[in-house]
């Protein structure tokens, strides 16, 4: 007897929307609000009738919201898929069935990524109708790339440790901080060390840099995508290898 894992995909996608969609929207809204507030953007600045300056601010705000959503949705795509599943002991029942833990978890992460893209498209469509036109393929592509990088890394970390979420935030923040303070670090004579360190860290800064092109629906240089996409894919493959070797917690 073989488990019907493909048929189970509908349940996994439903679980994403029931348990993770709303927290993702709330968390990304809070992050975007914090980022906008730090840049001095208020709701009154987002009036489409406010001329060219207003349109620029709206575009800038949308890019902030998109980046916040993509990072949060990417992390949420892998949240609970492995580490929490194990911590709560759900794996013991599921993997007494004729299913492969590698396939079960990978399918869950991929479906959550699809759910995140759907959520991003719906949100972007609402924004386009209510406020300002945006590129839906661009939004979908950006959320997918963020899922690949952030979700892939979260997937890998969650196969290794139950504390994957703080660790994920830490390594992403470390990369962004190294990028932000690159000039200062170079001036302090530790530029090469910082560059090596940044190469080992997930390229979150590349994702941040690309948000404008994606949000505007511009053509993206595939070489710019290679690093984040390759890093994310490598994480997913590493997670699958680890799951094959160690399907259970102990």
């Amino acid at each position: 007897m073989k488990g019907r894992l493909t048929a189970y995909a509908g349940y996994q996608l439903r679980d994403y929307f029931v348990t993770r969609a709303l927290p993702t929207l709330i968390a990304s809204g809070l992050v975007a609000w914090g980022l906008a507030a730090a840049r001095g953007i208020t709701l009154s600045d987002l009036d489409p009738a406010g001329g060219i300056d207003a349109r620029d601010r709206i575009q800038q705000t949308f890019e902030l919201v998109l980046a916040a959503f993509a990072f949060v949705a990417g992390a949420a795509a892998a949240h609970g898929v492995v580490a929490r599943h194990r911590a709560r002991g759900y794996d013991r029942l599921v993997f007494s069935r004729p299913v492969s833990p590698v396939r079960y978890y990978t399918q869950g992460v991929v479906l959550a990524g699809i759910g995140a893209v759907i959520l991003g498209i719906v949100g972007a469509e609402v924004f386009a109708v209510a406020v300002h036109p945006v590129s839906l393929p661009g939004v979908a592509g950006y959320v997918a790339l963020a899922w690949l990088l952030v979700g892939g890394l979260a997937f890998l970390l969650s196969t290794v440790t139950a504390f994957y979420l703080p660790l994920l935030v830490l390594v992403l923040a470390a990369d962004l901080a190294l990028d932000h303070f690159a000039g200062e670090l170079s001036a302090a004579g530790v530029g090469p060390v910082a560059a090596i360190l940044q190469f080992a860290l997930p390229p979150a800064h590349v994702l941040v840099t690309l948000r404008g092109e994606f949000a505007r629906g511009l053509a993206i240089d595939p070489r710019a995508l290679a690093w984040p996409a390759g890093f994310g894919l490598a994480c997913i493959v590493a997670a699958m290898v680890l799951l094959r070797r160690r399907p259970f917690r102990s």
Binding site: M1, G3, R4, L5, A7, Y8, Y11, V94, R97, P98
Partner: peptide, 11 residues
């Protein structure tokens, strides 16, 4: 039902 699906019970 979920666990039956995972067990491979036919639809």
């Amino acid at each position: 039902t979920r666990l039956a699906v995972l067990s491979g019970v036919r639809p």
